[in-house]
């Protein structure tokens, strides 16, 4: 074992981690928006919207993220002139959005429909009912799944290496093969991933307290 190599390469690790974090944050925001839109579509009273939403979830939850990324870069991205970074964001957001849609829908469905009748009796509008009654209760149910899925998304950013982004995993693989020291390099990458995902797990506790029922 020669751990010196990890210290020598520290600047390369930081740079690669920064790429991973950018990929993660942007695709998480997009995936959440996409997920919210499709979750609401899935509960619409219009059949076409429900179908569209079901089709989206069916396709993008069913395809491996790697395959989606490949399509996003070589097929769609190539026709639209998108960079690897833009294609990776699109692919990751599309893939993760399908899960987010189901997580958000499950959260919203967890609120007892009886409360709708109660709110109607109190003269709430439908929008008011969603905003003041369903979402505050639903969010508590969503948090654990949402954070787990986001952790998964962070790890999925490693797939962007196949389309030429030198994020943490891709760069580590290059370094491992360039230095012939895969154990040291990949262990270091593993520790970095664990630190970031640990921070995300800690944030789960914070969100749960933030949205807890205050008696």
């Amino acid at each position: 074992m020669n751990w010196d190599i990890v210290w020598r390469s520290r600047a390369i690790f930081w740079e690669a981690l920064w790429t991973s974090i950018q990929l993660f944050v942007i695709s998480l925001v997009l995936a959440t928006i996409v997920g919210l839109i499709f979750a609401i579509m899935r509960m619409s009273r219009f059949r076409t919207l429900r179908w569209l939403s079901a089709a989206y979830v069916w396709v993008f939850r069913g395809l491996p993220a790697l395959v989606i990324l490949f399509f996003a870069f070589f097929w769609l991205g190539n026709s639209l002139g998108w960079s690897p970074f833009q294609s990776a964001i699109l692919g990751l957001a599309a893939s993760s959005g399908a899960y987010k849609a189901e997580i958000i829908r499950a959260g919203l469905l967890s609120v007892d429909p009886g409360q709708y009748e109660a709110s109607e009796a109190l003269g709430f509008t439908r929008a008011h009912y969603m905003r003041r009654i369903v979402i505050p209760q639903g969010i508590r149910v969503m948090i654990p799944n949402y954070v787990s899925n986001s952790t998964l998304l962070f790890k999925s950013t490693s797939l962007a290496a196949v389309i030429g982004l030198t994020e943490l995993t891709g760069r580590s693989r290059q370094l491992a093969n360039s230095t012939f020291q895969p154990i040291e390099i990949l262990t270091a990458a593993g520790v970095i991933y664990l630190v970031v995902t640990s921070l995300m797990t800690l944030s789960q506790g914070w969100f749960e307290r933030r949205f807890a029922v205050k008696v």
Binding site: A16, T19, N78, S79, G81, S83, P84, F85, L165, T166
Partner: peptide
């Protein structure tokens, strides 16, 4: 038809890649 558009777009694609991928490198 796709190839024709490739010619134009590929240039942008790669320029973007360099900018975005790893700023410092």
């Amino acid at each position: 038809a796709a190839d024709e558009s490739t010619e134009e777009t590929a240039a942008e694609t790669d320029a973007g890649a360099e900018e975005e991928a790893t700023d410092d490198t």
